[in-house]
Every structure is written in C-alpha cells, then in structure tokens.
C-alpha cells in the first residue's frame, strides 16, 4: 500500500477496463514522474469529456451538441437506419465509408445475466423514430455473439409488425484470410450463408 494520493490514483486507474493492478501502478508512477503540463492536459481532457460530451437525442451516439454530426448531416441517406450496440460500433461502420445512412445506438445488448433487458436499451426510441415513414430499411448490426443475436431476434420480432424491411449483417469468413484457419463455427456459418455466383 502506498500513502494517500498515490494509492487513491492506483485504485481509480485499476477500475478502468483492461487495467489490472500492476498496470495501474505503472501508469500511476508514470503520471507522478511526467511533465505537469502534460498531465494537466490529460485531466482537462477527462473533465471536458464528462462536462461537454452527451448523447445525441436522436440516435444516442456520443455528441457535443444536442444532436450528433451524422444526424445533422443533410447528405446522409435518411431511408436506411443501421442499428448498433455502442458508439464504438458507429465508428467501425463509418470507417468502411460505404454506409451513407443513419444510425441508432442501442447502448448495449439484451443480457439477462448482467440484468439488461429491452427496457434498459434505446429500443422504445428506435420505435418512435420509425414513425418517420421515410425510413425504408433497418440494418441490424449488433455483435455476432449470443447476446447480439438475441437482441437482433428481439428487434426482428418487434419490427415484423411494422412492415419495414429488416436486414442483418452477414456472418462468415474474414476477407484476406485462409480457409484452413477459420474456426468451425465461422466456417459453418459461411456455409449456411453461401450465395450463388451465377445469376
């Protein structure tokens, strides 16, 4: 145990995701020895993020204003909506530069073990958005794991009654990879989702 402030910093850092006690200690001593100006910028950045950044009132992506840059952009296609779990996923899809529609961030996935049900996610807000009849297609881009698939199933059941086109991202082989290195589950999915090359 270190004295007062140092131990407090180690404890706080240790609560961050992906930071264990050893790493927390290392970061704490780095901060202790670093240039005060640099560390002031770090603490300012943390404060700014907590004070200024909020969630877009339309899509729940992170934003510094009432609505996010994507929702404000008039060039975005308003007929397609991509539903993702987290803001991180918006950035991932944005990096493809091939999707020009808008997003809806659920804020997680249905996970009873963690106590997260549909009411804890932004699903009601998604249904409200669908009263805008310009939306023609919903692309469900939740994670391809159990909880993500369950969330996709839940959404598909809700949206079936509305009569809107609902699609799910494909699962399968990574591009540029080797078939022999694919695991059995992925390869199995790729077989299920195979498509015809002719016609």
């Amino acid at each position: 145990m270190y004295e007062g402030a140092v131990q407090e910093l180690i404890d706080e850092l240790g609560r961050l995701p992906g930071v264990g006690p050893k790493s927390a200690q290392r970061i704490a001593f780095h901060i202790l020895e670093a240039d005060p100006e640099d560390m002031k910028r770090l603490s300012d950045a943390i404060r700014a993020v907590k004070e200024r950044v909020k969630f877009c009132s339309i899509c729940f992506n992170v934003s510094e204003q009432e609505t996010c840059a994507i929702c404000r952009d008039p060039r975005r296609d308003e007929t397609v909506l991509c539903v993702v779990e987290e803001s991180k996923d918006v950035m991932a899809v944005e990096r493809t530069r091939s999707f020009r529609g808008r997003y809806h961030v659920l804020g997680g996935s249905i996970n009873p073990i963690a106590g997260i049900g549909p009411d804890q996610l932004h699903i009601r807000e998604l249904l409200n958005r669908l009263s805008d009849d310009r939306i023609e297609e919903i692309i469900i881009a939740t994670d391809p794991n159990l909880e993500g698939e369950a969330t996709a199933t839940y959404l598909a059941r809700m949206l079936k009654t509305i009569g809107i086109k609902v699609t799910r991202l494909a699962s399968g082989l990574p591009v540029g990879g080797d078939l022999e290195y694919a695991d059995e589950v992925t390869l199995g999915r790729a077989f299920e989702g195979r498509r015809s090359l002719i016609g």
């Binding site: 249905i110 049900g117 369950a150 059941r157």
Partner: peptide
C-alpha cells in the same frame, strides 16, 4: 429475475427471444 411475481410484459417478450435461441 422474473420470479416472485415480478413477471412483466418485458419479461414475456424477451423470454420468447431466448426460447427461440
């Protein structure tokens, strides 16, 4: 979580999803 009378409509709809999976 749905035990002891806390069974709600939200439970019902999510349970159907888990039933399917």
């Amino acid at each position: 979580s749905a035990r002891s009378g806390r069974y709600t409509a939200a439970h019902e709809s999510t349970l159907e999803v888990w039933d399917q999976h």
